[in-house]
Simulated scan of single mutants.
Amino acid sequence: MKVLIVSDSHGSTAELEQLKALHQQEAELMIHCGDSELGEADEALAGYTVVRGNCDWRGSFPNEIITEAGGLRFFVTHGHLYNIKMTLQTLLYKAMEQGARVACFGHSHVLGAEVINGVLLLNPGSILLPRGRKEKTYALLECKNGVIQVQFRELNGNVVAQQEFSLG
């Protein structure tokens, strides 16, 4: 099972279309963690599960979504309502409260993944305005035999970082 996770595209549609074309055949789920700055009817978002970010004034995306793929429960939010630039603790508590094994978020434009108390906290970075590195990134999550592999990739598909996790 594979899941495509993107965030912070800030009005740009070419990158969303590019990643959809690259991964839609293999991805069971495609997530956008907010700040798309697009409306629900925008074709670039077709197929993506989308949440509202702090820069999303068009449309009525939800602030958070609970969804499942490959037997994993995902909590998806942008992150601004959980103060993720200061701490991941509030986000972690909410994910645990929802019974999620994976919490996907954006907002900071900084890629990262870590497991705390059995929950994978994953930020794919930004596909338009990255911070902390020059590469515009997204994440491809794959779960096999209880092991989750997260690949952070550039828009051209090249892997820039990779981590493996066991949620226990």
Rank of each mutant, 00 (worst) to 15 (best):
K2D: 10
V3F: 02
L4V: 08
I5T: 01
S7N: 04
G11H: 07
L16I: 04
Q18C: 11
L22H: 14
H23V: 02
E26I: 03
A27D: 00
E28C: 08
M30A: 12
I31Y: 15
H32P: 07
C33A: 13
C33R: 06
D35A: 07
D35S: 04
S36V: 02
E37M: 15
E37K: 12
E37H: 14
L38W: 02
L38Y: 13
A41M: 12
A41H: 15
D42V: 03
G47W: 01
V50Q: 06
V51G: 06
G59K: 03
S60V: 00
F61D: 02
P62I: 03
I66N: 12
I66F: 10
T67S: 14
E68Y: 13
E68I: 08
F74M: 01
F75D: 06
F75N: 01
T77F: 03
T77K: 02
H78F: 05
G79T: 05
L81V: 07
I84Q: 11
M86A: 13
T90Y: 08
L91Q: 09
L91D: 11
L91A: 11
L91H: 07
K94G: 03
A95D: 11
A95L: 13
E97P: 11
Q98C: 14
G99E: 02
A100H: 03
R101W: 09
H109N: 08
L111A: 11
G112E: 09
E114L: 07
V115W: 11
V115S: 02
V115C: 05
I116V: 15
I116C: 10
G118I: 03
L121V: 02
N123P: 13
G125F: 06
L129W: 07
L129T: 06
P130D: 05
R131H: 12
K134I: 05
E135C: 12
E135D: 15
K136F: 01
T137A: 05
Y138N: 04
A139V: 10
L141F: 07
E142I: 04
E142W: 04
C143W: 05
C143R: 12
I148W: 01
I148S: 07
Q149F: 06
V150M: 06
V150Y: 07
F152A: 08
R153I: 10
E154A: 15
L155I: 09
L155P: 03
V160K: 03
Q163A: 12
E164R: 10
L167D: 06
G168K: 13
